[in-house]
């Protein structure tokens, strides 16, 4: 009875710690976005939909961070990290329309070539994806070794 109580307390502590960590990570990430958004304000004024595009990205990314943190210590954490990396790649490709963005503003056509940025971001995301796969392999490996012992 005492063991069960202790176990429950331990689990609760663990979950609370995870939730706290997830919240802190989410808040930290949002704070970074908040600071950066002030610098990006001039672009938001020129490019319609830019603010919404960034907001959607941040929302989904924070959601994946929180869920990933809550599932830490399980294989799902690594799946979510891989999903996060894939989400970044897909979102960048879709929102940046292949890297060449064009807008028309009062008879002026503005074209911004962000292909270099996109390539670097995608390579970094692929590196993140590879890291998640390695982490998943390592996790399963360690689990198997632990269960053998």
């Amino acid at each position: 009875m005492v063991d069960a109580n202790k176990d429950f307390k331990k689990r609760l502590q663990k979950i609370t710690f995870k939730a706290l960590k997830a919240t802190l990570k989410g808040v930290f990430f949002y704070a970074i976005y908040f600071v950066l958004s002030m610098f990006l304000a001039p672009i938001s004024e020129i490019v319609p939909g830019f603010q919404r595009m960034v907001e959607t990205f941040v929302m989904v990314y924070i959601f994946l961070i929180i869920v990933g943190e809550l599932t830490s210590g399980t294989i799902f954490q690594h799946f979510l990290n891989a999903a996060k990396a894939l989400f970044v790649i897909l979102y960048l490709i879709l929102s940046f329309k292949g890297g060449i963005m064009g807008i028309t503003f009062q008879n002026i056509n503005l074209i911004v070539d962000l292909r270099l940025f996109l390539i670097i971001a995608m390579l970094l995301s692929l590196l993140g994806f590879a890291k998640s796969i390695l982490q998943a392999i390592n996790f399963l490996n360690e689990k198997t070794e632990y269960s053998h012992i």
Binding site: P42, A121, K131, L134, N138
Partner: peptide, 29 residues
């Protein structure tokens, strides 16, 4: 295997920070 993974993580985070700071400051300027 943990050390290489950690190094990949640190390197990725480092380059992400450089990329984001550069992009945002370039856009802001």
């Amino acid at each position: 295997m943990r050390i290489p993974i950690r190094i990949i993580g640190i390197a990725t985070a480092f380059f992400w920070i450089i990329l984001i700071v550069f992009s945002v400051s370039a856009a802001y300027s």
